[in-house]
Each structure stands twice: as C-alpha cells, then as structure tokens.
Write a protein that binds this DNA or RNA. Structure first.
Lengths: 207, 207, 207, 207
DNA sequence: TATGAATGAGAGTTCATTCAT
DNA sequence: TATGAATGAACTCTCATTCAT
C-alpha cells in the first residue's frame, strides 16, 4: 500500500513524517495544508500524492504509524513489576519524555487525531481506535498495589484523580513550551517539578 | 465598530451569536463555514458581512463577547466568602452548569478559541488573551482558607492538583456526552459524581 | 435542484448552455474543460459550480435538457399522417435542420453523450437512456405504408438501409462543415442533395 | 526518429503497439493514460518516453503506423479484378475481418484518430490526413462495372448509399459487441446478415 | 437594511514528462 | 537500455468576500 514511501531512505521518510505530523498536530485534519507539508519536507506537491494517494490516506497512515510507535515504544515498555503507582508513573513519564525527544509531534498528533471530528476521517478513525488513551490508562495502572491506598476510598476514582493531575501538569508544560516558542523544555526542571507533584499525591493518597 | 450589529433587536442578535458560537465551537476557526452560520441564524450571507466585515472580525467579536460573559457572569459571580476550597469549587461548578444552560456553546467556544493555532487569528488572540484560564483560576482560589490543608505541602501545587482533577472530570463528562450524542448530560448524576471526587480530594488534602 | 440556474434570465441561460453543450460536444465528457465553458459563457469559475455543483451534474443536466428538447421539439413533432417513408424522412430532415439552427450543438452533444464511456457518468447515463436513437427510429418509421415497398424483401432491413444511408449523408455534411470551419452549411444546397438521395432510394425501394 | 523503438525485437514492439492502440482506441487521445499503456505493455514509464519522446509523438507514430497497415494490408489487397460492386464489397468485408483478427484495435484506433478534435494533435493530424476514408472509398469502388446499375441514376450517389448502408451495418455490429461486452462477435452470423443486406442492395441497385 | 448571485484565490489531486541512478 | 521517483502545470471544486439590486 505505502510501499513507495516505505522504500525511501530513512532520512527522507523522517523528513516527510515529521513535516506531516507537525502540520496535522498544529492545525487538525481539515485545516492542515498539503502545501505546507511538502514545503517543510522539501519535496514537490506531486510526490506527496505519489506516496500517499490522498490527504486522507496520509493522515490514516500517520495515525497507524503513531499508534504503532506509541504501543511498541511506550505502552509495551511500561514495566509492570513496579507495583507502586508513583514509581510506575515516574517511570512512564520518563519514557514519554524520551519518546518526545525522538518524535517531537507524536503525542500532539495522536491527541489531535483522537479528538478530530472531521467527517473525512471520522469513520475510519472510529473503526480503528484501539482507545489508545484507555489502553495507556490500563497499562499504566496494571498490577498496582492497591493496599497502600487510604482505606475507605473508591480506588478507581483515586486513580482518575492521579491520572488527571498528571495530565494537567503535562498540558501545562506543553502550553508553556508553545508560549515561549521553545522547541523543547528543560527536562531536568520539568522532572523535578513532576516529582514534587508525585510527592504530594503520594502523601495524600497513601496512609 | 460593530454598532450595526449591536443596534439589532436582541432576539436577532442572539440567533446570530448562538449560530456563530456553535459553528466555531464545533469546527474550529478555519473549518467553520459562514454559510452554515447564516443558515442557522436565518439571515443572508451579505448581512453577516455587513455586520462583521470579515470572518476573522466575527470570530474576534465572539471571543470578546464570550470573555465578557465569562468574566461578568462567571468569574465575577464567584462568592469569595466561602473560604473552604471545596465549598468554593462546588459553588463554581453549579454556576458553570447554570451558564451552560443559558449559553450552550460558550465554554466550548472559548476552549476552541484558546487552543486554536490558525494563523489568521493567532496573533490577535494572543494580544488580547486575558488568560481566562488563569483569571478563572485566580478567582476560584481567591481568599481561600489555606490553614485547613495538610502542613508541609506546597499549597500552590496542591491547588493545581485539585484544579486539574476537576478539569479532568469535566472533560470526561464532555467526552461522554459527545460519544453518546446527547445534547445534555444528566446533571444530577454528574453533580453526585462530582461531589464524590470532591470528597476524596477533601480527605486527601485536609488534615 | 438547478433552480439557481433556471431563475436566470433566458439570455444568460442560453449563453451558459450553449457554451457547455459546445465544449462537451467537441471534447467529450472527460476532456471537456470547465474553464473553457466559463470563458465562452463569460462567467466566473465559481459561478458555474454555484449553478451546477459538479461537472457531472452539469453534464447530466445538459443531457436531460437535450433529451427533453429532442423529444418535444423533434420526435413529438414528427407528423405520422405522412405514410410514405420518403415524405416522412424529408419532413424529419427539415425539422432537424430547423432545430440545429436553434440549438447548434444539440445533436452533436447527444451523439457524444450516447457514445461516451467515461466512468464518471456511464452509470447515470445508462439508468436514464431512453434510447433516443431507437425512439427516434421508431417514431420516424411509425405508421409507414409498407405496401409500396418491393415485394419479397425484408422490410426491416430495407428501413435500416434507408436509415443508414440518410445518416451517412448527414455525417458527410457535418464533416464538410467542420473541415471548412463554417458554422453553418448552405441549407438550400444540402436539401437539394438530400432530395436527390431520397429520389434514388425511392426508385430502388419502391416498385 | 523512432529508430530506438524500431530496433527492438518484434515481440516487444507488438506489445507496446497493441497496448497503445488499445488505450487510445478506448479512451481517445486526451483521456488515454500513458501509465495504462506501460502497464499493459509491461515496460517502464521512462522507457516509453525514451522511445517516443511525447504522448503526442506516440500517437502520431501510431497513426502513421496504422495508416500504413491499412493501406498495405487492406486497401492494397483489394482485388480490383472483381468488377461487380457487391462481390467487391464482400471481398473487402472479409479482408477487414481478417485484419481485425490480426490487429484487434487497428480500425477502432483509426476511427478515433479520424474523429478526434483534441487541440494537441488536431493540426498534425489534418496535415497528414491522407483521407484514409476517401482512399478506401476510392479503392473499394475502383474499376467497378457501372453498366449493371439501373439507368438514369447518379452512380456516385448510388455508391455512397451502398457505402453508408454497409458502414451503418458495421457500426451496428460494433455497438452490439460493446453492449454485450463480448470481445468478438460471431463472425459467421455477422457475415450471413451482411450478405442479406448486400442482396437487398443488389436487387435495388441493379436492373 | 437585506439579498444571494458573482468573483477568484487557493485547495486537493492528476498526469505527461524529466532525470538520477 | 531501463527504471520509477520526482516535478509542476492544470484540473475540478470550495468558500470568504463583494456588489448590484
């Protein structure tokens, strides 16, 4: 199907993939411009369609590509031997930062793809949505030692609060990066702050 | 500037405003269609441009209009005499539900506007972003009795966690409404669950 | 459906119709250029699509329009009281010339439409093909006095020969007009020659 | 000019020629796709252009090639010793069927080429149109014994009628083949019917 | 004020043709 | 000679915006 593209040398593939992920991540499906993608990738308009046939196919290719990476290089890498939820979350966070380094637009693209309502791709997306979010959520909280939690509290809700709190912090970092037009945050500082939040949650949630 | 529009009878103004808020909220700036707006509003295409000159001006008018409502009818209505953060949050939540009833697309529009990156409006939006979020955050946590919090914990971070947890729950509700294609959730059930989350956070955060 | 177009003043309608009939008649469906049509019609690119939505819809509109004219102003006008086949054919021929005067590209368009294989319109065409040709053939030869024909000859085949001979002459005239780049032939000369052919066929076919 | 192509082994030449004739015959000049040709011929895109430079040159090469075959293997093969027009026509008909067997797309291609109006090739076609039709017509009716015709009738016109009648029958057969999606008609049946038409014409035209 | 026909730049896509290998 | 990736002009179609009425 996409063999023409996949036979390219890796460097050119990366250029095209990153350009496309970036454009879709920033503008969403409908507003993303194929012209911007080819400009950024340094290829001609015709060539993009030589590889991917349509904008829609390109998007779905990127979706599958992203999901594959997120599954194999993120979810599957979560070590469920750490049973303490905060040790686990820290581990996952470090994994994510690593991945963002390698694929700067991957998570933003997948977030945009997950929430798009564009009628062109909605149907196809629904049919393949493996619920990355829920899959990630499940893996993140798999085999957790719940005995450490304060008694008398709904553990599912407790997990949700922890999940949302961490997601909130992550979004804050992303917003700050966007606003300051940095390409990358200072990950040491971020991790330090992240740990501070984990510490609070630990004190709160555990006995 | 928009005097032509503002001189209309209120009923017609509302029709146009709601139609436009709805379209932008659903599709984002670039993908919103002026023809859909005029159809829904029951006016002609020419008239919309007679009132607002350009799509961009319409959008920015809506943004300012939304911010004004959110400020005057939401943030300013927060009663800071309730010093307990969880009493406060519950109060704010009820206020928001009330406002959603009156302006169904207001908060979704403001969320879309806040996160749009469309180059047409990005610059103007930045220059006027009064940081609704931070403004809301500030008001929501203004004059809070911090003595109730567990000692030895960074209060600002604690507030953030609570804020994000609540935001997370809100988004979950919105996603569920979207997925079930309901126009409105069952607010009683939602409030009950909301309270359950507040209770957990209370146990956690307070002594 | 095509109300926007049908509400135009007749002169503009004619300009657009003739431009489109001409372009499709000359180049066939696939190769016809909407740009050429709008140039010839003196309207803008957008306007053609404002009227007809797609090239396909335009083509099918033209098809239905042409079939209607050919039916009501050609086939239905054939006077079947003339039972002599040669009187009938002469009558039909005069009718056709008249119609060509009014709608110069009508018959060429309908011939092109009948023989097009373009996958875009093939299906729709098939579903509505009222078999103009066979319908015309039927009407042309309806209520003919067959007693005048030479005995012992298959009358159906005889009719076919006459039909093809006349068709052949007609095509010859069309080719000559094309080659000389005249817009219209000298109809008096053509009719004279046509009569000469009819006379021969009469001597041949009748006793 | 086309020496690169002509130096190929005959089998490959034939593959390319037949693929190209078929594609042009089916779709006309403008709508014919070079990629379809190379796929059918089993060569690469670059190679086609290496041989023929442009689509136009390929088309004109095919035209000249076709005309040459039609001249040498069709018109020149007409045996003018048969002076009876109907014997002659039958002979020509059999010749044509034979040739169609050998070059399935030859006549359809030449018909399409003769009637194309595509501006790319129109001019060149006109300048070399040796009037295949008229050439064939001339040869077909060369050295015919006109004494057998009914007296008092314009012999040229009589010949035309016979020519058109036969052409009409031929087109009918082609249409029927197309409609039934057969690759080839039942030639025995066709010949039988063809003879029936010749018989009628014979009775009519001769004393 | 109010309409919607009219405009044209720009979108995604196709395809003959070129060119590095 | 042979390949097919790469190009870019041209296609159909969309849509914010203008303008005659």
């Amino acid at each position: 199907m996409f063999s023409k593209f996949l036979n390219l040398d890796k460097e050119k593939q990366q250029r095209v993939l990153n350009a496309a992920l970036k454009e879709f991540a920033r503008k969403g499906y409908d507003d993303a411009s194929t012209i911007e993608i080819v400009k950024e990738a340094g290829i001609s308009k015709g060539l993009l369609f030589h590889y991917f046939n349509t904008k829609k196919d390109l998007f779905l290719f990127l979706y599958d590509y992203s999901m594959k990476i997120i599954k194999t290089e993120y979810f599957d890498m979560i070590n469920t031997k750490d049973k303490d939820i905060f040790v686990r979350l820290r581990q996952v966070y470090l994994l994510k930062i690593e991945l963002i380094h390698e694929y700067p637009w991957l998570f933003q693209f997948s977030a945009v793809a997950a929430s798009t309502d564009s009628k062109d791709v909605k149907k196809e997306l629904e049919s393949r949505k493996l619920e990355m979010e829920s899959m990630g959520f499940a893996k993140m909280f798999e085999n957790i030692d719940e005995s450490k939690f304060k008694k008398g509290i709904d553990v599912e809700k407790a997990k949700n609060i922890i999940f949302w709190a961490i997601g909130g912090y992550t979004n804050k970092v992303i917003e700050e990066v966007k606003a300051s037009e940095l390409e990358e945050p200072d990950y040491d500082k971020v991790l330090e702050e992240f740990d501070a939040y984990l510490d609070i949650l630990k004190v709160w949630a555990y006995n």
